[in-house]
Amino acid sequence: MIRAISVDMDGTFLDENGEYNRARFERIYAELVKHQIKFIVASGNQYYQLKSFFPGKDEELFYVAENGAVIFHQGELRSVNRFEERLVQKILRTLIQDYQDLQVILCGVKSAYLLKAADSNFKTFAKKYYFELQEVNSFDVLPDDTFIKFALDVEVTKTGQIVEDLNQMFNGEIRAVASGHGSIDIIIPGVTKGSAIQQLLNEWRVTPDDLLAFGDANNDIEMLQLTPNSYAMQESSPEVFATAKYIAPSNKEAGVLQVIEDYMEKSQRP
């Protein structure tokens, strides 16, 4: 019996326009509430951006944001995993000196930060995903914040090589992972959407067998590995297809909502 549902957002829950059928979701969500099924929004994106998709539900939903580095519920920070300041400075030096053609966002709990000198198109892109975003002259002096992730934008064709290079260069101090469409996240080793969701399941005394999970990119793999009720979206990465048990219809066809509706319908049959 399903007792919790976790959904990635971009490429999974959201359609190609970054939206979802809100009226349809409201009908489904009312059934989830009736059956005491918890809904987890699990994304590499910032909490402040994620909650904007679900107005009025901040008290009810659980947000696993920044690829599991933070958990928010009822508007409060429930859990945080942070990089040491020394390592933050080392990563920034490497990115800025060795990879002049990539764009960097330093993600903190309070805000995200990018350089004033960043590409204007990248700034526009960043504002779409980071609702709390500040521009800084340099990263020589770090802002007063707790740092939890780095988000990089690179040429799509270079993604795999840069991920491999960074993981080798930092040798277990970080984990670089592709999050789709030329985006790379640098995260804390062992801290993933899967580890954060497992933490919530433990609190609720819910087994992974009672979790329904959806994803499309490599930063979803640990979440999908948790449960036999795992779905790769129709346009997922090869690694996600190899991990998930099932394939959901495309995000362009509200595949997540289709699968949840099917589950709810089956659960109500005598």
Rank of each mutant, 00 (worst) to 15 (best):
G190Y: 01
G194E: 03
Q225T: 12
A232V: 07
T192E: 01
A248R: 02
E239N: 10
L166D: 02
A213F: 06
I221M: 05
S179H: 11
D209Y: 13
M223C: 11
K193S: 06
I184V: 04
G160S: 15
G160F: 01
G180W: 10
A248S: 11
N219V: 07
I187K: 08
P208F: 02
L166F: 15
R175A: 14
V191N: 11
D220L: 07
N229I: 07
A244N: 08
G215C: 12
P228I: 14
E164W: 00
E164H: 12
K193H: 03
G190Q: 07
T243Y: 00
P249V: 00
Q168E: 13
L201K: 01
S250G: 06
Y246R: 08
M233G: 03
S237R: 06
A178Y: 00
T157L: 06
Y246S: 10
T157P: 01
K149V: 02
F241Q: 12
L166T: 01
Q225V: 03
A217D: 04
P228C: 11
F150T: 00
A232P: 09
I186W: 15
I174A: 05
Q198P: 01
A242T: 10
G182K: 13
F214Y: 12
F170D: 11
I148C: 08
S236H: 13
R175F: 09
Y246E: 13
A176N: 12
P249E: 03
I187D: 05
T207K: 05
I247H: 00
I162W: 06
Q199T: 15
S195M: 05
E203V: 07
P208D: 12
N167Y: 06
D185H: 15
L200E: 06
M233F: 09
T157K: 10
D210M: 14
E239T: 08
G172R: 01
A213V: 08
S236C: 10
A244V: 10
I148N: 05
Q198D: 10
F241Y: 15
T157I: 09
E203M: 04
E222T: 15
V154R: 10
Y246I: 10
S179F: 06
P238E: 14
A151W: 00
K158N: 13
L212P: 03
Q168T: 04
A217R: 05
D209L: 08
V191Y: 01
I162S: 03
Q234D: 06
T159L: 06
K158M: 11
A217T: 14
V240S: 11
A196V: 09
G180A: 07
S230V: 06
G182C: 05
K252A: 06
D185C: 09
K252Y: 00
A176M: 04
A217L: 05
S230R: 02
Q199C: 04
Y231Q: 08
F214I: 08
I221R: 09
M233D: 07
L211D: 15
D210I: 02
P228M: 10
I197A: 03
D209T: 15
A196W: 12
G182M: 09
E173I: 00
L226K: 07
I186Y: 15
P228E: 07
A217K: 09
K193P: 04
R205V: 02
I184P: 11
V206Y: 15
K245M: 14
T207M: 05
A244H: 09
E173T: 00
K158D: 14
A178Q: 11
F150Y: 14
A213Y: 09
G255Q: 02
Q225P: 03
G194M: 14
